[in-house]
């Protein structure tokens, strides 16, 4: 035990305390609450029960959970399909331009997420920009119902989380040696073969990180469906929010959160498993 060993241990105290107080403790409280008895209007009885989980067996909750996961998967897929070519294009740009284009991807972050989501209301509304243009060009005679539909939520999610896909892809592809593409071409590989055999396997890490960064917030999203989804596209995030802020059924909300967390943990475990043995975070071969 030399001195630097102690210094390192000492430096760990603060983050461990931080995580303990602000992450582990609240998480434990959440789990505890999910097993307490709901007493109406925000009060709980300190009596253990599995009732909250039993209530979740109601098939409607299952449907909404399934729909949230489906929507999150769809969002992730679209972000990947849109983000991958863009990231690829970005890294092939000459130096000064590359930085400028990357900045353009990041700049929307400087505006508040709520404002950007409200902007979609202005675009999608009955008297919104899209409907006005289509009506003006006589393409449609009645305004389309775009806002307050699952479609609007999906657009909002893809728009909101696309940068989370592009940035990790960019940082992975930036280190990619494009001589490998030339080598593959020399060996007679066509475009798709290069993509599937060379590019994608060597950028798996970025793809994995990007997909997680999009999927996890998308599956719990509640602001976007709240603003763009209306009454008919409830997601599991809204359910949790409703339990805590509207009906004040904290135990049910806690049980929902626990289930949701376990559901999110699954793809993360899967992701770690895909890594090389002994080095879970590294799976770029």
């Amino acid at each position: 035990m030399n001195r630097s060993w102690w210094v390192w241990r000492g430096l760990l105290v603060i983050p461990v305390l931080w995580l303990g107080i602000f992450f582990v403790l609240p998480l434990g409280l959440l789990v505890v609450y999910s097993f307490l008895t709901h007493q109406g209007y925000g009060n709980v009885l300190w009596q253990w029960t599995g009732e909250n989980y039993a209530r979740l067996l109601n098939p409607t909750y299952g449907e909404i959970l399934l729909r949230s996961v489906g929507l999150a998967l769809g969002t992730t897929l679209v972000c990947l399909v849109l983000g991958y070519p863009l990231a690829l294009w970005l890294v092939t740009q000459p130096r000064p331009w590359r930085t400028i284009f990357l900045l353009l991807v990041i700049i929307p972050f400087w505006t508040n997420f709520l404002v950007r989501t409200y902007a979609w209301m202005v675009l999608l509304g009955q008297r919104g920009v899209i409907n006005s243009i289509l009506l003006g060009l006589n393409i449609i005679s009645e305004p389309l119902n775009l806002l307050f539909t699952p479609f609007a939520v999906w657009i909002g999610l893809v728009y909101g989380y696309l940068p989370f896909m592009i940035l990790p892809l960019y940082s992975t592809l930036e280190k990619f040696d494009f001589n490998l593409v030339l080598a593959a071409q020399d060996l007679g590989a066509n475009f798709w073969q290069i993509l599937y055999r060379v590019l994608i396997p060597l950028s798996m890490r970025g793809i994995g990180v990007g997909c997680l960064l999009v999927f996890i917030p998308a599956v719990g999203a509640f602001v976007t469906p709240d603003i763009l989804g209306g009454a008919r596209s409830l997601l599991v995030g809204n359910l949790v929010q409703n339990q805590f802020l509207k009906t004040l059924d904290w135990p049910l909300g806690a049980a929902l959160s626990v289930v949701l967390m376990l559901l999110i943990l699954l793809p993360i475990l899967l992701y770690l498993r895909l890594g090389e043995p002994g080095n879970p975070m590294n799976f770029s071969s």
Partner: peptide, 9 residues
């Protein structure tokens, strides 16, 4: 809750 759930799906 039931209303929001049933309408929401």
């Amino acid at each position: 809750n039931a209303v929001k759930l049933k309408v929401g799906k």
